[in-house]
Design a protein around this nucleic acid. Sequence first.
RNA 1: GCUCCGGUAGUGUAGCCCGGCCAAUCAUGCCGGCCUUUCGAGCCGGCGACUCGGGUUCGAAUCCCGACCGGAGCACCA
Length: 506
Amino acid sequence: MNALTREEIEREAERLGAPERRRKREAGLPELPGDTSRVVMRFAPNPSGPLHLGHARAAVLNHEYVRRYSGRLILRIEDTDPARVYPPAYEMIPQDLSWLGVEVHQVVVQSSRLDVYREHAEQLIRMGRAYVCFCDTEHFRRLRGRGEPCEHREQSVEENLREFGRMFSELKEGEAVLRLKTGMELRDPAMRDFPIMRISEVPHPRVDARVYPLMNFSVAVDDHLLGVTHVLRGKDHIVNTRKQEFIYRFFGWEMPEFIHYGRMKIEGVRLSTSEIRRGIEAGEYSGWDDVRLGTLRALARRGFMPEAVRRAVLEAGVKQSDISFSWKVLYAHNRQLVEPVADRYFFVASPARLVVEGIESFRARVRLHPDHPERGYRELVLSGRGGRAEVFIDRRDLERLEEGQVVRLMEGFNVLLRRAGGGEGVAEFHSRELEEAKRHGARLIHWVPAGEHVEVEVLRPEGRDTGVGEAALRSVEPGRVVQFERYGFVRIDSKDEAIVACYAHP
RNA sequence: GCUCCGGUAGUGUAGCCCGGCCAAUCAUGCCGGCCUUUCGAGCCGGCGACUCGGGUUCGAAUCCCGACCGGAGCACCA
């Protein structure tokens, strides 16, 4: 029973339907450090828009670890900067997560916890570890650079408590902040008495407030209170981790384990939610799912399966070195998922008219998928008159052909090109059989019968293609991912007089 | 500038903690072939890397030092 190779065993396992054979890539993620007996992790986006590829990495990685250790995942919406809140995002983020297959066990919205931060801030003041500072940014920065304390650092606890109270009533935005007393002599200037609470008079869509915690404070308080054991985030947070350490220390709390992964450069797409938002408002983008964007909604619209996104970001892993995200890899994962299920159709992107003489009508019954006859057939119906018929072929195919050459209209018949020019061609029926085409070394090109065709527009990240598709396309319901042969995989987006498809990849 | 990280094929990744099983994994890419029909899908095969220099050691991709290169942070954003 043991004379099997690994491949044989795997094949056998597959045949028997072994349920959850762990993928290699999952196994590739390193183990989490520290105690992993009751893992609690969190995904903490700020609600400035829907999720994009960068978020997907954080969300999927956290989810994957939580799943591996049977832990819990918290979605924490970090909306403590009212200026950056985009209200619809509160709904969009959970939607995007569920599309990704990331299930969260608890949702926390920071703006609902403002009193928690206030209480903890007061506690720090009472411990003599925080003070209300009235220095303007510029002035404090200079002092900080020299390592000198400002006059407010010496205020009494009572004074600080009183001034802190005034931040909630009469003080104006920018007049005062609450600073953590970390030490002005610290080696790293960024660590010196950094602020933890501030005033913002920008109205908040969810709450009526004017004093907000700064990220490092709310994150530390929440991570502790929510029992987070492992924090997985980008390495741009390394400095924040060190800042948060002060807060843990002052409260006497135990630090969670931190893992920082490197930056992921994504070529070609715009990810910044604020920029996208401006673009949408300016009418430059059709919406958050504009196919040119790197949002998950845009990817979904183009026909990417969530699993492909998961695999691609999982593969990127948690290394601290920066990586460039490769679209090719995402394409390959998606292709692998979609290829077996995508029905095939003919679409001619830049149509050139080809008159075929010597044939008047023709009917081809073609498999929807070359490897799966059980999925059914489509029909290509050619009907001409007067001993001739017309088809559309790709202009580039026509240009590559020389007069006197034989070419096969895939799944149809072979024609001999008589003449071509001005984006049109005239050919004559040559023969029927594929063998004959091979004998002549004929190229196989796709085609669409003229007359029966449907107008098709393909939205691509870099532009749009307009062309014609075969009649059978009319009966494909929107949302389906199909392959336009010799063109690529697309998702049928909408269907009116014309069909609109969104391009995924070759 | 200061503080802190990191460097395995074109790209991503495994291996590095616990040195030998690594003439280095897997995927993608590229090249070639195959396919009763995709020069653009699929299948098969091939190509391609331990940044450099020292040191430790019988032995280093793995440990140590230095150089070089790359990155992050230095906000009353997250």
